[in-house]
Amino acid sequence: MNRSFRFDSVMLWYLARRLALAGVMLFGLVCLTFVIANVAPSDPAALAAGPDAGRSQIEQARREYGLDKPLPEQFLRYVGDLAQGEFGRSVATGRSVGRDLGRYFPATLELCLVAMTIGLAVGIPLGMLSALFKDRWLDQLTRIFAVSGIALPPFWFGLLLQLGFATWLGWLPTSGRLGVATEPPEPITGMLLLDSVLRGDAALFWQSASYIILPALVLSLPCLASILRVNRSEMVECLRADYITAARAHGTVPWRLVAVHALKNATLPTLAIIGLRWGWMMSSTVLVETVFDWPGTGLYAVSSAIAGDFKPVMGVTLIVGLNFMLANLVVDLLYGVLDPRLRDA
């Protein structure tokens, strides 16, 4: 039918426009991180040469890393490298930032995916229940929980969980990604949970699950709370809507009214917050990874920044920014899938 053809071409055009826009924003982000890295009062060449280096050795390092070139030239080289998927070299370790990111990013992605799953799996049903029992005790409890979820500082909450579940109860490990005695397997995706499923290694799965659960909980809490709040208020609106009254009058069964007729309408605004939260999560892993010693991009960025090593920080910033943009693009496309009015507009 020609409607679906029109739908495809409209969507493709939309996608192309959004990708072009994302490219422009990404370039802006590159400029910004480059400027910030270069106004910082530290000398990367001195760092590269080591603490005991003399003047000539520092100058040699400066030449080696191209730091003696004028800034515009350095910038062009950096952009050129990025275009080839190269993030430059860390001056502290001399390693390729791109390769480091390849190692650390899967750990962060895994953490964020688990945290987002918790956020969705708890936030949406709880928001729905809260709306159904509006102003009753369940709703009040949920709202207190949601407000504290947004207000609790993650590092404090993380320490509290470590104290409770690791130190006192001894049920879960305190920090890290795997026990010291466990040899990490050859990565397939780099995400341990997924890799252990792919390899059919149940012991590894449960071990990595026990390590990821606490940091994922801490990371998910603010996200869960805001999904819950938005979903609750949207559900309250949708349950009051005329089309729900009508569907009720026509005899539609209550659970379908709530779980399909109202929830689908409430999902649209909730989606927007999910997209934003995904981006924020990627950046707020910095705190959580530090507290739980989780070897991801957050910890990598923090340790590099403390050392005054800016290429890794810039790399992580770009990855976080890219994720932000991708998440919002996916959300926009999902809008089109969920809302037929947008499709035809």
Binding site: D242, Y243, I244, T245, G251, V253, V260, H261, D339
Partner: peptide, 21 residues
């Protein structure tokens, strides 16, 4: 306009009513 669900097809809304009855 406001008494029909904007996100569901007419078919879904009618069959839900019929099945619910």
């Amino acid at each position: 306009v406001s008494y029909l669900n904007p996100l569901l097809t007419i078919g879904t809304q009618m069959t839900d009513a019929l099945r619910g009855q």
